[in-house]
């Protein structure tokens, strides 16, 4: 029956080489090997520095953010004492909250930290969240598909979904973008820092701001305050630097943000291992197919 010339060698060399290349390709495709190095916080990056000792809690930053980014009002919790709204949301990207630390009650400004090792960028499947060369973490709402992974991985709880339909999952992510459009078009710096009347929020080159922050911390320490910089090395270095008067935890900030490492393990270890599994499965199947095709005749219908 089987009278086509059947070579003794089960798999041709060419087929074998082709197969190996295919398997290797499949296992490498998708592994983000090329993107493995997180961007480095350069002193030339743009950054914001926040000094809570200077802050008078006027909320001009919060208002300027709303106005520039055309964010609607949010109904206020009537029991909220000073914090209104209570927290960051899809339409509130910058907020002043009251914090109680060892020096007593004082204000603190929350916004995106613009991490170097940004968990949101790592898990975003669309690259809607990306590192802008200027240094901040930008958001392209056109590319966002509303999956919401960023909202679950950010160590600071910054991005929020603007949900259009819970059932279909139609949504868009929203967060502080460093006023990316202002920077891209050369209008100026982020509106919050531009508007601050007391210099509690300032923007500039990260290297310069770090020098300023160090000098300021020395000054505050000389006054007997437990001052420190937050953001110099956290998550690879933040572009939103803060001066704290106590432990980061007193501000609801993690001393060591853990989610960037989790996000990296998922995206760069577990997923590539999965790709190796797909590659091995396909390679095994193709090899078996070619081998068996020569070895076993189609079993006759009995």
């Amino acid at each position: 029956m089987n009278n086509r010339p059947s070579p003794k060698l089960a798999i041709h060399r060419r087929e074998f080489l082709g197969l190996s290349a295919l398997g290797l390709g499949i296992s490498l495709v998708g592994a983000r090997a090329a993107a493995a190095a997180p961007s480095v916080a350069s002193p030339d990056n743009v950054a914001i520095l926040y000094d809570p000792v200077k802050c008078v809690g006027c909320k001009a930053c919060q208002m300027a953010c709303k106005r520039w980014n055309k964010l609607p009002n949010e109904s206020t919790d009537p029991l909220g004492i000073y914090e209104s709204p209570r927290d960051l949301s899809a339409i509130t990207w910058n907020i002043i909250k009251l914090r109680r630390t060892e020096v007593g009650w004082h204000f603190f400004n929350y916004q995106c930290m613009h991490c170097t090792d940004a968990a949101c960028v790592e898990v975003c499947p669309t690259r809607a969240l990306f590192h802008d060369p200027l240094g901040f973490v930008a958001l392209d709402r056109q590319k966002c598909n509303g999956c919401g992974y960023c909202t679950q991985f950010c160590p600071y709880g910054v991005p929020h979904l603007q949900v259009a339909n819970l059932l279909t999952g139609e949504a868009k992510s929203a967060k502080c973008t460093f006023c990316q459009d202002r920077l891209w078009s050369g209008i100026g710096g982020p509106s919050c820092a531009e508007v601050c009347p007391v210099g509690a929020l300032v923007w500039g080159k990260r290297g310069d701001l770090l020098d300023r922050a160090r000098a300021r911390v020395a000054e505050l320490q000389a006054q007997g305050l437990n001052a420190r910089i937050y953001g110099e090395n956290e998550a690879g270095g933040l572009r939103r630097l803060s001066i704290l008067l106590g432990e980061p935890e007193e501000y609801g900030l993690p001393s060591v943000p853990k989610t960037p490492a989790f996000a990296r393990a998922w995206q760069r270890i577990i997923q590539p291992l999965g790709n190796v599994a797909f590659g091995a499965a396909l390679l095994g199947i193709l090899g078996t197919f070619l081998f068996v095709r020569r070895k076993i005749r189609m079993e006759e219908v009995k």
Binding site: V29, P125, K143, T168, E170
Partner: peptide, 25 residues
């Protein structure tokens, strides 16, 4: 897999991404 594989990213973006997520559901 469109959400999983970085090289399929263009299919995951914007309206297309919304659609594939709807199909998934």
């Amino acid at each position: 897999m469109i959400l999983y594989f970085p090289f399929l990213e263009p299919l995951a973006q914007g309206e297309a991404g919304l659609f594939i997520r709807l199909v998934h559901r």
